[in-house]
Simulated assay, not measured.
Amino acid sequence: MQYWLMKSEPDEFSFDDLEQRPDQKEPWDGVRNYQARNMMRDSMQVGDPVFFYHSNCEVPGIVGIAEVASEPRPDHTAFDPDDNHYDPKSDPENPRWFLVDVGFVRHLTRKIPLAEIKQHSDALDGLPLIRRGNRLSVMPIDPQHWDYILDLEPGSAEKT
């Protein structure tokens, strides 16, 4: 099992949106970064835990826990000329972009803001989220970093 953090702008797709979806699952489509694609395609496995992170908002931070809910498959949005994520170079016979479904697990008892996470940079050394210049929307989380961040949540004895 591996641990992940996935970023979404809450104006585009929020954690509440995920919770309200049928079966509380949604394809994580539209990723157009090769490194993030490779992680979804090659490393994510069904059941892997995911921190759901709200980015590009007034107070960015981790708001909930989700899980990888499907095997990777080609990202259909790459083939649709009417979709914002259309890629004319992506071929259904040899797809360039992949996605996984993400499933809702639970809200955190409070948002853990990025500013607070950065205050723990010694304990979270190497965490991609706080690495300067890292803008990936999908990133791996070391198990010890996962546990440390969950310990910042009140009532953290019920870790997922």
Rank of each mutant, 00 (worst) to 15 (best):
residue 37 R to P: 05
residue 91 D to Y: 01
residue 132 R to T: 14
residue 136 L to S: 06
residue 53 Y to C: 07
residue 5 L to I: 11
residue 17 D to F: 11
residue 96 R to D: 10
residue 73 R to G: 09
residue 106 R to I: 11
residue 28 W to E: 04
residue 55 S to C: 06
residue 22 P to L: 06
residue 126 G to K: 01
residue 82 D to L: 15
residue 86 Y to T: 03
residue 114 L to V: 06
residue 63 V to H: 02
residue 125 D to Q: 14
residue 21 R to M: 14
residue 109 T to R: 14
residue 122 D to H: 10
residue 72 P to D: 05
residue 131 R to D: 13
residue 117 I to P: 06
residue 58 E to H: 11
residue 84 N to A: 14
residue 105 V to Q: 13
residue 26 E to D: 11
residue 135 R to G: 11
residue 117 I to H: 07
residue 98 F to Q: 00
residue 25 K to W: 05
residue 145 H to D: 07
residue 2 Q to E: 13
residue 31 V to F: 03
residue 145 H to V: 07
residue 106 R to L: 04
residue 49 P to T: 02
residue 39 M to A: 10
residue 44 M to H: 01
residue 144 Q to Y: 14
residue 94 N to I: 00
residue 122 D to R: 09
residue 34 Y to I: 10
residue 13 F to P: 03
residue 118 K to M: 15
residue 67 E to Q: 14
residue 159 K to E: 15
residue 107 H to D: 12
residue 51 F to V: 00
residue 68 V to P: 03
residue 153 E to D: 13
residue 28 W to Q: 00
residue 105 V to F: 08
residue 100 V to Y: 00
residue 156 S to W: 12
residue 147 D to L: 10
residue 63 V to Y: 02
residue 30 G to M: 05
residue 92 P to D: 06
residue 152 L to Q: 03
residue 57 C to L: 04
residue 30 G to K: 01
residue 22 P to H: 02
residue 62 I to P: 06
residue 145 H to Q: 03
residue 61 G to T: 09
residue 32 R to Q: 12
residue 71 E to N: 13
residue 12 E to N: 05
residue 52 F to V: 06
residue 102 V to C: 03
residue 160 T to R: 11
residue 1 M to C: 08
residue 152 L to F: 02
residue 65 I to M: 01
residue 144 Q to L: 14
residue 119 Q to C: 14
residue 91 D to S: 12
residue 153 E to I: 14
residue 129 L to K: 02
residue 47 G to N: 08
residue 80 D to Y: 05
residue 74 P to L: 05
residue 6 M to W: 03
residue 96 R to F: 10
